[in-house]
Amino acid sequence: MPLPALSMPCRRWAVVLTAAFALPAGAAGNAAAPAQPALGLSADGTLVVDHRARLAWPRCVEGMRWNGSTCTGMAQLFTYGEAQARAKALGKADGVRWRLPRVNELRRLVDRSARPPTMDARLFPAAPRDWHWTGTASVNAAAVNPYAYGNVVRGGEGESQLSVQQGWAVDMSTGEARGDVGRATRMAVRLVRPAP
């Protein structure tokens, strides 16, 4: 039995809904194909590639070096400003857009369903399980709004000045994130770049 004819507005919605729920070309035949793991190694084994986010992570944190089988040396600790400068300098030297990861990107490296939560030691050997800097900005809109009653009463002092001096960090042993870390604090850094 044929479907009833649709009015013009209904036809537009039918096209939109059909497009929204359509499978990508070739997806119907690949329904049983296994999904690619989220994290895998680059061809040369020096990077961990996040296939879903299209990001590449060095296997070692800054200060440590990959020797072909593990990370050697000591993790270098940076202030927030030093971490940003390191990413910029490395980017200029390599010609690659290295940067500090965002909170959600760095947290994805910690398997929080594991007990206890952990990073995959095969992908990130000898990784420090400490706090790491992220590039996520601390934004406290109420504190920087000059028209907010609390800021007018304080004369624009207090939190607004502190929020500039704070940044976000992730505890790589738990996946916990905090946005109140003083930018002068020295922490480990794992940079990220677009996947090759």
Rank of each mutant, 00 (worst) to 15 (best):
E82R: 12
V189C: 07
H51G: 06
T46C: 08
G155W: 08
L41E: 10
E176N: 08
R52Y: 04
H51R: 14
A93P: 04
G63W: 11
Q166N: 09
E62Y: 05
L17V: 11
R190W: 03
A141Y: 10
Q165Y: 06
A75T: 04
H132R: 03
R12N: 10
M119Q: 03
H132Y: 15
L77G: 02
S163Q: 14
G73A: 09
A114K: 09
V192W: 00
P9G: 08
V61Q: 01
V153N: 07
A75S: 15
R102H: 07
D120V: 04
G155C: 11
A121V: 09
M64K: 13
T79F: 04
A75R: 01
R186F: 04
W168M: 03
L123A: 01
R54W: 05
G40W: 01
V152D: 04
R97I: 00
P9V: 08
G156R: 05
P2K: 13
P101T: 03
G81E: 15
A126H: 14
A19G: 14
G175A: 10
R183Y: 03
V61G: 01
A137G: 09
A87F: 02
Q166M: 13
A33T: 09
A14Q: 14
G81R: 14
H132L: 15
A43Y: 00
G68H: 09
W98N: 02
Q166V: 08
F78Q: 03
R102D: 10
L162N: 11
C60P: 02
